[in-house]
Structure formats: structure tokens, C-alpha cells
Simulated scan of single mutants.
Amino acid sequence: MTTAIIILAAGKGTRMKSNLPKVLHPLAGRPMIAYSLDLARAVGDLPPIVIVGYKADEVKAAVGSGVTFVEQTEQLGTGHAVMQAEAALAGRADIVMVYAADMPLITSATLQRLRQAHTASGATITMLSVIADDPRGFGRVVRGEDGRAVAIVEEIEATEAQKAIRELNAGVYCFDADWLWPALKRLRPSPRKGEYYLTDLVGLAEADGRRVEVVTTETPEEVLGVNTRVHLAEAEAVVRRRTNQALMLSGVTLIDPDAIYIQPQVQVGRDTVIWPGAALRGETRVGEGCTIGPHA
């Protein structure tokens, strides 16, 4: 089955307090959106669709070739954003996977697991959830008496009882493509914000008697969404830890990993020793058996 990826990258990112589009803020030496593109190329079968809007020309220039850009001229919500991709994708894919470019920590293993669950169950929608005490603005997954997901309620629309739900919508979906495109036309603007929510498709699928499946991630950090510079720093710390752990497992000694900064593009040979305070960036290459001294 052919999988197409849609990356949502049209938003301004008001809470970043920046003139730079949110998805272009650097994360460990790369634009944040680069991580989403890496995933799309690893999991998808077609060039990824990137929905652009705010400062679209800047985003296009940073992303470059190898993708299909679709412009959302008015930012009217996630459902509206995906509507814009119909002309580019209709009839070309069996599964449409959607996620946002401000979630750079998701792993390809999780996306593969989501897709496998989707195809194995024959679901119309398969979504990723996370159990967490801090909702960080995520929508809540509402389940029926039988335990099946029946709706997603955005935080701004949620009742106090719904806000107490700890199962959160992570904003990553697999859709049956043949059902998706006509279903999007049935979305209606939300009462409070006037936006078309992609999450309302869960309720539509339930009303249609369709199967909705949920895959819950066991590593909450990977669905950390970046909406502020505080979130960006948190994501940077995760990327840094993952990078350092991968290097140590490959045979590199880091004397004090928490005091060493290495960007993911850096290559280091085995039996190299790196002392605290070192900072290795960009396309740096270090051979085998080297020593990088303190504060180098």
C-alpha cells in the first residue's frame, strides 16, 4: 500500500516571539522542519507534501527540492490545511499520514508502528496518543464505554471534565485516503475559533461506523511539540542526549556527556575520547583514536 506524508508547516508560531517562521528555528544546527522531512523520506513512498503559509517563500527556500509544496493562504486550521493537499494526492496513495513540522522528536520506528497498526486493523483512522499529566495544549482523546476512541476534543473546546483526561492526542495520524478526501468536505468550523479541526474527523468516522484505532507511545518525549523557545530548548536537550548516547554506543568515550555538545551531523570514529566542554558542530569529522581536549 502506498503511503503519502503531509507535513503541516503553515503556522506563524506566535508564541516563539520571532520574525522567523517557527519551523525554521535551528534545532541542533538544522532547521526544525529538517527532522520532519527526514522522517517523511524514511517512511513515505512519495515525495512529502509540505503545507506552507506564513512566510512561505522563506520556508520553501530552506527546504529546497525533493518535496511538493502546497500553500494554505489562510490559516483556517489543521483540517483546512490538509484539504489543500487533495489536488496533489488524490488517487495517488492508499494511506495518508499527517503530522506537524513542530514535532521534531518523533522517531521513524513510531511512525512505522503506527502504519503497521493501521494496515493490520483495517482502520479508517489510526492516531498516536500519549499519557501525560501536563497536557501542553494537546487535545483530549475521548473514549466510549467500550474503551474505543470516539472523539478528540481540542483543549480550547473542552469541558472541565474533558480537560481532566490524561490521554492526549499527539497529532500524528494515518488515514484511509479514499475516505479522507470526501470526509474533509464535511468538516465545519469550530464554534470558538472558526477553524476546521482535523481532529473532528475522528467523530465523523465514528458516526460513519468506521474503525478508529489508537497507538499510544511509550516515550512521551518524542511527541514534545515546540511552541515556545522553552520547548525548543527542551527539544535541543533531547537531541543532544540521543546524539551522545549513539556515539557512546558506537565506541566513542564521552567523559561527561552532559557537559559536551555534539550536533547530530558530526561523525566521530571509535576509540576517540572527548573531554568536557568540547563543542563539535556542523559537518565536523573526527577520526578513530583521537582525543578532543577540554573546551575545544
Results as ranks from 00 to 15, higher is better:
R136G: 00
T126G: 06
S121K: 03
A120G: 12
L128S: 09
Q116Y: 06
I125T: 08
D134R: 05
M127R: 13
L128E: 05
R115E: 14
F138T: 00
A123E: 12
D133K: 10
I131F: 09
D146E: 10
G144D: 13
G137M: 00
F138A: 05
A117I: 07
Q116C: 08
V130K: 11
V130W: 11
A123H: 10
G147Q: 06
A120K: 14
R148W: 04
G144N: 11
T124A: 08
T119P: 00
G139M: 02
F138E: 01
F138R: 09
T126A: 05
G144W: 09
G144E: 10
D146M: 10
T126N: 05
D134F: 00
G147T: 05
M127Q: 12
T126M: 05
R115M: 11
A123S: 15
V142M: 12
A117T: 13
D146L: 11
R115D: 12
R136M: 04
T124P: 05
E145R: 14
R136E: 01
T126S: 12
T119Q: 15
S121D: 03
V130L: 10
S121T: 08
V130Q: 12
R148T: 15
A120R: 15
T124E: 02
Q116S: 14
S121I: 01
G144F: 09
G139P: 01
R115W: 04
T126E: 05
T126R: 04
D133E: 13
S129R: 06
R136T: 00
G147A: 06
G147K: 06
R143A: 06
I131L: 13
V141C: 07
G144R: 10
R143K: 13
A132H: 09
V141R: 02
L128K: 10
G144C: 09
I125E: 04
R143G: 04
A117N: 13
T119E: 15
E145Y: 04
F138Y: 13
A132E: 14
G147L: 06
Q116W: 08
L128F: 03
G122D: 05
R148I: 10
D133V: 01
A117P: 09
R140C: 02
R148L: 14
R143C: 07
R136F: 01
R143L: 04
G122L: 04
V142C: 08
T119N: 07
V141F: 02
T124S: 13
A123F: 11
V130H: 10
F138P: 00
G122A: 07
G144H: 11
D134P: 00
Q116K: 13
I131V: 11
A132Q: 12
V142Q: 08
G147F: 07
R136S: 01
F138G: 00
A132W: 01
